[in-house]
Amino acid sequence: MNDRLGFSFSGSLGSAIPFLCGVLAAIIANVPISFLGGLVPSPLLAFMPVYFWCLVRPDLMPAPAALALGALDDLLSGGAMGIWALSFVVSYTLIDRERDAFAGLSGLGAIIGFGAAMLVTEVTAFLVVAATHATFPPAGPFLLQAVTTILLYFPGLSLLNLVHHRFIGALRSDF
């Protein structure tokens, strides 16, 4: 396993990196401090690793991991449980079914692909919130969060690429 990784990480630790990235992203996004005075909702950072590794290494980001990251996001955000968990799983299902189409995108197309997945996540969350609260919440904040997250995916993608190349990339096609 070590030669697959090309590093001294054990196999379990190396394969846990995508999930740990998701955990870290969830914590960062949910540190309840607003830099913009509450003007925009917190971005959904935890969805970036889910989307990225669901495309390139679904074996390292299985559906239960997406569920766990969504649940962690729910837990840390202080809202009702299960909203992001279900939204992540629904998006994961879409990405899994259309993986070839999504993975074939490059450059700006990759961002658009992420945007599409993000919209599915937000729409799902919107519908779950509407169902659980028995009222339709305003759609604006959901869209604003989607836009913020998509904009942050530009630097986020570079960071995820770096992590992937540095720690995981060597064995991406061996499965």
């Binding site: 299985p62 070839d100 993975a103 990759a110």
Partner: peptide
Amino acid sequence: ANGTWKIARGKGSPQLSI
């Protein structure tokens, strides 16, 4: 996340898992 990746596929039945 583009065409340069060879996509890794998990074993088992992913649809059932999902």
